[in-house]
Amino acid sequence: MKYAFFPGCVSRGGCPELYPATIKVCERLGLELDGLDKRGATCTGAGVLQEKNLFLGDVFNARTFAMAEELDLPLLTICSTCQGVMSQANKRLKDDADYLARVNAHLALEGLKYKGTAQPRHLLWTLIEDVGIEELKSFVIRPLTNLRVAPFYGCYMVRPSDALEFKLYPEREDSLERVMSALGADVVDFPGKTRCCGFPILTINERNSVKMVALHTSDAKDLGADALVTPCPLCHLNLDGYQPKAMQQAQRDIDIPIIHLPQLLGLAMGFDAKEMGLSRHIISAKRVLSKIKVPA
């Protein structure tokens, strides 16, 4: 199966380990990727641009959708925030033909036109909706037995649920748990899994942002999780990068590794730690690796 692939800024920016890990895992799964970044697709706006200029954000995303339509390929994302922002933009564009026409008037400058058929989908959903859980299991050569993992979705993968079409695809609601179990891991049910990591207010109210990191990482730790797994690189930036500060602030030891979804897939598929870029995290992933007997 072939996809128009939207990697997002952070998978090659603040989380440079995510992009190569994704490429390897998708290749193994037989998901062929045509990178929209190479075709000049822009940032989604991440919800920040939308605060200031919602219309410009919608024009940017419609442009990316039009590129995928031109290739006649389904659109694949690997970031909860990109996914959510795209889903919301898509809803506005599809719900209102006049609005779409207004957007298309600008895209015409480049000879592009969005017809309204794109369906941006995160790798997490694609695993369930295209690959299939049973098929996914057949790629597991190193079951993650005894590894206790807690899911952390990222706000934009769970809300607003109407834009994310949870009614149409009810399995999206616990997709992360489904995938983690398929890889053989023990899922730790965890109340913080759909809460906010605090990243969006990091430069605005760092104290509150770091408090969120402290709360969720320590809750997961106290529930016996060996790691948190996230489909969102922005959550990763905060939960991993600011965990040392969170430990300082909360005055306790937490030290729980944060694993990108593709890295977890890769480990179960037999890739080594280096191939998955696991040495690049701030919080060492060694504990996870020793638990599944992978050399660090």
Binding site: C155, R159, P160, R195, C196, I201, I204, N205, N208, M212
Partner: peptide, 9 residues
Amino acid sequence: VWDCTRCYE
């Protein structure tokens, strides 16, 4: 207004 995380809850 700037303290909101935009979490959509």
